[in-house]
Each structure stands twice: as C-alpha cells, then as structure tokens.
C-alpha cells in the first residue's frame, strides 16, 4: 500500500510539472499586450514598455517559466495585474473557499441521494422505481447546469421567494447564514449529477447483487440492509468513486455560467475574469489551483478504490 502511494505521488508531481508548462505556454501566447491592456489606450508607449519591463514580460521565456515553477513551489504567484497591490494568492483563496462551500453542499445532497437511489434501483431492477431513477436521471443530467440554475432561480427564488435568488451574501453574514444563499446553485449541481452518479452506482450494484458472494451473504441469513452495507456497497461503489474523483476539478473550475447566473464569486468566474483582463498571474494561479485540486481528488479516489479493492492493490504493487 505504501509503495502504491509513493508511486502514485511521484506520478502526480511529474503530471503537475507538465501541467505548469502547458499552462505557461497557453497563457504566454496571448495575442494582446498585457501591459497595454493594463494601462489603457491613452498611456504613452514608453509607459507601456516600462511596465512590460517591470512585469518581466520581456525576459526570456525560460526565465518566465522558471518564475512560474518557483511560484507553484512556494504557493506565491506574485501580484495581480488587474488589481495592483494585491497578491494573487489572496485573491484566489476566498474564491476557492466560496467554490468549496458550493461544491461540498452540492455533493452532500447529491451523493447520499444518488447512491441510495442507485443501490435501491439495482436491488429492484426493472421495477417502476428503477425505471424512474434511470429516466429521471437521464433527463435532469441532460439539462446544462446554468439552465436548471436559471429555472430554480426564477421559480423558487423569484416567483415563490422561498430562497434568495442571488448568492452574494451581504457582508457580515455568518457561515451558517451564508449557506441559505447557495442552496439554489447547489440544487442545480444536484440536478446535473444525480442521474449520472445514480446510474454509475446502479450499474455497479446490479453486478454486485447478481454476484455469488452476495448470494453467499443472503444464504448466511444476513438481513438485506447488512448485505448492502457490507457486501454490495464496497464492491459497487468503486466506479462511483472514480467518477466523483474526476468531476471535482470541473466542479471547482467549470461552473462558470452557474456562478454568473447567481452572481457568486467562485473560482470559475474568477478565472474567466482574469482571462478577460489578461491578468496573467491570476489566470495562471487560478488554473493551476484547479489542476492541483483535480489531481488531489483523483489521487484520493484512487487510494480509496485500492483500499476498497485488495486485488487491484496487489496487482499494482507487483
């Protein structure tokens, strides 16, 4: 197990390094001139050149890359261009916190609901309940997150007025109080992911219910609930865990439209703004943070899976 973790970590570090290079290449081929963008059209060319020099934009590419790598290693991506005087990290952290709040709330509702439905659908395969879960799940996950977001916003937030229609909590709202503001976007996440995760879980659970070892458990006289907890979940949740692991990155960095709809300052909208403003350090920092989150999530998922599946463990170890 330890060897597996070490190898997996080493692999992650190599991936991270490659990723930094890719992010650097992508951001450094921007067509426009960040210094001109910052100063606006009316400043003199000298001032622009001088700023470019100060920002290190004229340094050799390798030197710029070196700075970025160092930044990643120390967690310091320098100063923001668009909001001079503010450290990039200080801008990222609150956005990250906001995203985390939304994602965690969304998953806290989605996971139990979809896993339970998936397992029960598998247990009662081909029943009305099973068909409803599958069809409903397909229907809701076919709707983009921001569309269901807008619908929720309009119906629950505006027409019924049960919950705040935007998610920007007023200053000074406590943690608990602020949760009320993000229930609607969290529900949009639930709508997108419920069907997906329920279906993946169902597929695994169908297999488990048909397996000989579950038969053995029933034949021991084990009650259904214990059979599910002990024998079905452990083997059928492996694909579910893998799916969740790969979706975390998207949830943190990809909910751009949803965040815009609810005017919620998460990581996704921060990154898109940084790109529009040609705020290179903020953009690089944001993208790399999302990538690191993605890597951590898949790493954790892999570890969890190998803990769930001793056979895979012994294969990768040997």
């Amino acid at each position: 197990m330890l060897r597996f973790i070490i190898r997996r970590l080493a692999l992650s570090i190599i991936t991270l390094f490659l990723l930094v290079i890719i992010v650097f290449l992508l951001t450094s081929v921007f067509p426009n001139d960040p210094a001109r963008q910052l100063l606006g059209p009316f400043q003199s060319q000298e001032a622009v050149d001088q700023l470019a020099e100060e920002l290190g934009l004229n340094d050799p590419k390798t030197e710029q890359l070196g700075r970025l790598v160092k930044g990643v290693a120390t967690g310091d991506f320098g100063e923001s261009y668009s909001r001079p005087g503010e450290r990039v990290m200080d801008l990222i952290l609150p956005a990250l916190g906001n995203s985390a709040k939304l994602v965690v709330l969304g998953l806290l509702i989605t996971l139990p609901l979809s896993i339970l439905s998936g397992v029960l659908a598998a247990y009662r395969k081909d029943s009305l309940f099973d068909r409803s879960v599958v069809t409903l799940g397909l229907a809701t996950s076919a709707i983009p997150d921001f569309v269901s977001g807008i619908l929720l916003q309009y119906v629950i937030g505006v027409r019924l007025g049960w919950l705040p229609a935007t998610s920007n909590a007023p200053r000074g709202t406590g943690f608990i109080g602020s949760l009320e503001f993000i229930i609607l976007p969290a529900l949009a996440i639930v709508l997108v992911y419920f069907g997906y995760i329920a279906r993946v879980t169902r597929a695994g659970a169908v297999q488990a219910f048909e397996s000989d070892y579950v038969r053995t458990a029933f034949m021991k006289g084990m009650p259904l609930r214990r059979v599910i907890n002990r024998h079905v979940l452990r083997n059928s949740l492996q694909p579910t865990v893998a799916v969740i692991g790969t979706q975390i990155g998207f949830l943190f960095g990809g909910l751009i439209a949803l965040e815009l709809v609810f005017n919620y300052p998460g990581l996704g909208s921060m990154i898109i703004n940084a790109a529009q403003d040609q705020d290179l350090p903020l953009l690089q920092g944001g993208v790399i943070i999302v990538a690191v989150l993605y890597m951590i999530a898949t790493l954790l998922a892999d570890l969890l899976i190998s803990w769930m599946n001793p056979r895979a463990r012994s294969v990768t170890a040997s």
Partner: peptide
C-alpha cells in the same frame, strides 16, 4: 433469515466467486 443462519447452509460450485473479493 433465522432458518438460513441457524438451520440450513449451502456450499456452492465456485468457491472463488462465492467469497467477497474485497
């Protein structure tokens, strides 16, 4: 359940599949 856990048991054809692999 009580009948299976205390009065009757079964042994199957494929012992590898009959045990939970994890």
């Amino acid at each position: 359940q009580a009948f299976r856990s205390s009065q009757a048991s079964m042994v199957y054809q494929d012992p590898v599949a009959a045990m939970n692999p994890s």
